[in-house]
Simulated assay, not measured.
Amino acid sequence: MAKDRNSRQAVGTIETDGFPPVLAAADAMLKAGNVTLVYYGLAERAEFIIAVRGVVSAVEQAVAAGVIAGEATKRGAVVSHYIIPNPPENVESVLPIHYTAASREFWV
């Protein structure tokens, strides 16, 4: 994968307490913005986390929609969310926020 593809794009994350809000957030994020889901997993304290990549404006739009959808679920809650525009290479080298072969089919 080309490094310049990642370096020009933002990463946005949402962390939730419970599976229903992370599922609702992921669905809303991918429908609201022209973004690619690049990570899904467990964070500390058994909370779920998802990360998307795309241009800054699309990531901002996706995260906003994801937070609203996650907070609207009846069980669980959105714990935190964050957007990093143009993360540096050293951040990408240690965190699972890069495009992978599995996400290649869905690149936007």
Rank of each mutant, 00 (worst) to 15 (best):
M1K: 05
A2F: 07
D4P: 00
D4W: 10
R5K: 10
R5I: 15
R5E: 08
N6R: 10
N6E: 15
N6M: 15
S7K: 10
R8V: 10
R8A: 14
R8H: 09
R8G: 10
Q9N: 12
V11P: 01
G12W: 04
T13S: 09
T13W: 07
E15Q: 10
T16K: 01
T16V: 13
D17P: 03
D17V: 14
G18D: 05
F19R: 14
F19G: 07
P20D: 05
V22C: 08
V22M: 03
L23T: 10
L23D: 05
A24H: 04
A24W: 02
A24F: 04
A24L: 07
A25Y: 01
A28G: 08
A28D: 06
M29W: 06
L30S: 05
A32R: 07
G33C: 03
G33S: 03
N34P: 02
N34F: 05
V38P: 00
V38W: 00
Y39H: 15
Y40E: 15
G41R: 09
A43L: 13
A43Q: 09
E44L: 15
E44I: 15
R45C: 14
R45H: 12
E47G: 07
I49G: 02
I49H: 07
I50E: 03
V52G: 04
V52C: 08
G54Y: 04
G54P: 03
V55T: 13
V55F: 09
V56G: 03
A58C: 07
A58I: 05
V59S: 00
V59E: 01
E60A: 07
Q61R: 05
A62H: 01
A62K: 01
A62I: 03
V63Q: 00
V63P: 02
V63F: 00
A64T: 04
A64K: 03
A65M: 02
A65I: 06
A65L: 04
A69R: 07
G70Y: 02
G70H: 02
E71R: 14
A72I: 14
A72R: 15
T73R: 14
T73A: 05
K74Q: 14
R75V: 12
R75P: 01
G76E: 04
A77F: 06
A77T: 12
V78H: 01
V79I: 14
V79G: 01
V79A: 00
S80W: 06
S80C: 06
Y82K: 14
Y82G: 06
Y82Q: 08
I83K: 02
I83Q: 02
I84L: 11
P87E: 12
P88M: 13
P88A: 14
E89R: 04
E92R: 07
E92Y: 12
S93W: 09
V94L: 10
V94H: 02
V94G: 06
V94K: 12
P96Q: 15
I97L: 12
I97C: 00
I97P: 00
H98P: 01
H98W: 10
H98V: 13
H98E: 11
A102F: 08
A102M: 10
R104G: 05
E105V: 06
E105A: 12
E105R: 09
E105K: 05
F106L: 11
V108K: 08
V108Y: 01
